[in-house]
Design a protein around this nucleic acid. Sequence first.
DNA 1: ACCTGAACACCGTTCAAGT
DNA 2: ACCTGAACACCGTTCAAGT
Lengths: 210, 210
Amino acid sequence: VAVGLTKESIVEAALDLMDEHGQEWLTMRRLADHLDVAAPTLYWHVANRAELMDAAVDLALGGGALATSDDPDWRVRMATFMRSLRARLRAHPCVTELTRSRYPASVHDMTALAVEVAAAAGLSPAGTADLARLMIWQVTGFTTMENTIRLGTAMHEPTGPSSYRVAPPDHPGARESVDEHLATLDTDALFELQTTLLISGVEQQRAQGR
Amino acid sequence: VAVGLTKESIVEAALDLMDEHGQEWLTMRRLADHLDVAAPTLYWHVANRAELMDAAVDLALGGGALATSDDPDWRVRMATFMRSLRARLRAHPCVTELTRSRYPASVHDMTALAVEVAAAAGLSPAGTADLARLMIWQVTGFTTMENTIRLGTAMHEPTGPSSYRVAPPDHPGARESVDEHLATLDTDALFELQTTLLISGVEQQRAQGR
DNA sequence: ACCTGAACACCGTTCAAGT
DNA sequence: ACCTGAACACCGTTCAAGT
């Protein structure tokens, strides 16, 4: 009955619904219902569920260039790149859920941009390649952890957009002064720390001539 | 017919089968078949599939203490901790698959050990807590990426236990000298680099008094 | 060209029934 | 106490049939 169904609109709806409810929640029938269409109709526009998931990831990751900085300081450009990649991955929590058996081409393509940013650190070609790879892995890995917590776990109770109260571990440690700090988690702050430490590490490697 | 089925044997079998075939592959019926039992039998020992997955993760992560080092150098102990956590996560690839939607208590409990290791770096209590968290997140995040590639992606062709040939990205970059290095990937080397850079970063933070 | 209902082989899970 | 077959409400996907 409904007309004008396109592959694009299907993928957009799938991405939206997965970001809201998680990828397991989204079934072909639920997606079809949402689009006011019968389930088999989707198969005229899309080969199968796997292809649809890939298209959703590519849509989430390929939407416009990442924000970049032209600050003369390479450390600022590096931090900016990592922050904006994280922002994109946070905007679409289903992406880190889906990149299980999928390492989509769009993640792969991010490497090109990362190389440009990493090159400014003045390392050898091999060091530049390694650094570019590490930036992407660190951000992606971090955001995967972060999104797992954002989706709601038994021991993390949200207290703000990036902050949580954390349940104490089963075996209470002897270090009470540290336990106090472990009772809260701020993912923004932890991400900034990771980025700062990576940049510091690169500086030191460079000072030692690598 | 078969007798002596226990919750433990069910969880062990589930973990083994998931490590071999992936978590999606394992269905209650397949697991039951493997154990020579009818599917509903499993529900006498286990509440449901989700509880079984959690138990499998806890089994994989809780199996014996992590290898530790008593080297006087805190940097060696830190690297040892991170390597052995990675080793454990690599031994059970299904864990990083499963922790995309669950943050099991066993991951949480690793923090206690990480705090002991981090404390030796001589940071403030807050800094120690942050560092402990970062160690766990970096290793877990890294291994999640790594296992995704190990499970087989279109652009990573294995050439050794931790090395891959990587397909070139769609948009060939202008930096040919770097592209050459991006054509191969060694996850062991990349992990060592990440660990080295983290330790370097901590040293520099400490030199600046944090 | 696009959409549908009916159907197939699967799921997780329940439950009355067996020993 | 432990295990089973039959059944229920779901999946992804196919296919003949409609417009």
